[in-house]
């Protein structure tokens, strides 16, 4: 298992606040230093799924509009890329986090990506499914491990049947 790439990013209080709001969590621990419920050290902390926001800092992340590149979402027409397959992106099948310690504003994290297993399965609702596992280990500015994320993505042969 070799490292594919690394992305280094700062964990900022404002970003944590916006992320917490976006998951409907208004606990003061996410926006009000020192008043967090159940927060013995009186500092802010990030919600457990926050490490996923590393996407904002990944220069190659495909699900963001980039300067000079065609975007597959709609503008004047339903997709900015003609002939794009109907199931453009993969779907998320599983996500697991293991924390060595909580993520806090002020951290500068480095995410190290590595590829896991790939496997296939037939499904009644979406045809052939191709699963891909990806591991991301997050380290802090002192090189200490903070968290491991294991994601499983799935590409479907056709859109998932809603029946």
């Amino acid at each position: 298992m070799s490292d594919e790439k690394t992305v280094t990013f700062p964990v900022e209080g404002t970003h944590v606040m916006m992320f917490a709001r976006s998951i409907g969590d208004y606990n003061p621990a996410y926006h009000d230093p020192g008043k967090g419920e159940g927060n013995p050290v009186g500092a802010q902390v990030a919600p457990p799924t926050f490490p996923q926001a590393v996407a904002q800092f990944d220069p190659e992340y495909p699900l963001r509009i980039k300067d000079g590149e065609a975007w597959f979402g709609s503008g004047g027409s339903p997709s900015g890329i003609e002939g794009k397959p109907a199931t453009s992106g993969g779907l998320h099948a599983e996500q697991h986090f293991e924390y060595t310690r909580p993520v806090r504003p002020g951290d500068v994290l480095t995410a190290r990506y590595s590829q896991g297993e790939t496997w296939e399965k037939e499904s009644r609702r979406a045809g052939k499914l191709t699963f891909t596992e990806r591991l991301v280990d997050y380290y802090d500015q002192d090189g200490n491990h903070v968290c491991r994320a294991r994601g499983v993505g799935v590409r479907t042969e056709r859109p998932v049947d809603q029946g």
């Binding site: 621990a29 419920e37 996500q95 697991h96």
Partner: peptide, 12 residues
């Protein structure tokens, strides 16, 4: 409390 979570995983 967010600072006490050691593992969290789901299947969608």
């Amino acid at each position: 409390g967010a600072e006490n979570v050691r593992k969290y995983g789901v299947r969608f």
